[in-house]
């Protein structure tokens, strides 16, 4: 009986480790950017550490069960009454505390890493891309390049990208597993996600947060290209793509699935991102709030100059 359990768990462990280290790597454990690398390292570190704990517990359990099973004891054996010993308890608390402290340090360090410009890219200006979701699409606005794309993303490799995320509608989550973990896009504030691709390549991205009927197909494709190719692409778009009008954008926002499309100009010009969130932190938002609602036009230009100054 116990052996069976042991075998199941052993098979499990073996399966996991073969899959994790096997020929076809899992997306999350096959990072293509510094952020995803940090996360994958944390994940592998914690997997090995945790596997150790599971094995220790399992070993003690199997040992105790084999040794003290009733059929292994004399008939008249009466188990003793043991209250508990402070030393043993201290060890049982101490070791987990040490592990937790160790993991906390790792965790905190990584937190600050993934929330900052990716390591190794600090010296250059990050490329700012606004990624907004609507049911069930992604709109990518490049304010510097004055380009907007739907459902696909071209980025220069070897350069830090600063995604500004928000949503037209339900909360969504912007996720490109091979470049780094996800972050929410919400309707009343803008969140920032720092990513970078180390080399050119194709990656899949998706909305990871359930957002209704069309959620499963709410995906997009990411292509990282050399900076030269990227500039070519920008130029090409400027030459060929139609301009994004307010009507066209309204049409794009209609619920449904769309293929890829490309435009010059961004929707940020007529529908700015909700960057002044409704006063969740500072107290004098009452005024700014009113401004935001009454003076849309002037606000827009403010907003814009702010971005380019980033």
């Amino acid at each position: 009986m116990k052996l069976k359990m042991k075998w199941i768990l052993l098979t499990m462990v073996i399966t996991i480790s073969t899959v994790l280290t096997g020929c076809e790597p899992l997306l999350v454990l096959d990072p293509k950017g510094p952020q995803a690398k940090t996360q994958a390292d944390d994940i592998m570190l914690s997997i090995w550490l945790m596997l150790g704990i599971v094995i220790v517990v399992l070993a003690i359990l199997v040992f105790v069960l084999l040794k003290y099973r009733a059929s292994n004891q004399p008939k008249d054996y009466e188990p003793p009454h043991i209250e508990g010993s402070p030393i043993v308890e201290a060890i049982c608390i101490g070791i987990p505390i040490i592990i937790v402290i160790f993991l906390s340090i790792v965790s905190v360090k990584s937190n600050y890493e993934v929330e900052a410009t990716p390591a190794g890219y600090e010296d250059q200006e990050p490329l700012v891309i606004y990624a907004s979701s609507s049911n069930w699409k992604w709109h990518f606005s490049y304010p510097e390049e004055n380009i907007e794309t739907v459902n696909y993303l071209y980025i220069p490799a070897d350069r830090a990208i600063e995604f500004k995320l928000y949503s037209y509608g339900p909360i969504t989550s912007f996720w490109i597993p091979q470049l780094g973990g996800q972050k929410y896009a919400m309707s009343d504030m803008v969140t920032t996600l720092h990513l970078a691709a180390d080399a050119p390549g194709e990656f899949s991205g998706r909305n990871a947060n359930f957002s209704g009927a069309g959620f499963a197909e709410n995906t997009f494709e990411v292509t990282a290209m050399t900076p030269a190719d990227y500039l070519d692409w920008v130029e090409e778009v400027h030459e060929t793509a139609p301009a994004l009008t307010e009507d066209k954008f309204e049409e794009l926002l209609e619920p449904g699935h769309l293929g890829r499309s490309t435009y010059t100009g961004t929707h940020l010009e007529f529908a700015p991102a909700p960057e002044h969130d409704h006063g969740s932190t500072d107290n004098n938002t009452n005024e700014s709030e009113h401004e935001q609602h009454n003076e849309h036009e002037s606000h827009d230009s403010d907003e814009h100059s702010e971005h380019t100054n980033h």
């Binding site: 965790s107 973990g181 972050k183």
Partner: peptide
């Protein structure tokens, strides 16, 4: 505990 590591959780979340 693995999920509690917030940086790594960016990859586990919603999966």
């Amino acid at each position: 505990v693995m999920l509690a590591m917030s940086a790594a959780d960016y990859q586990y979340h919603n999966t």
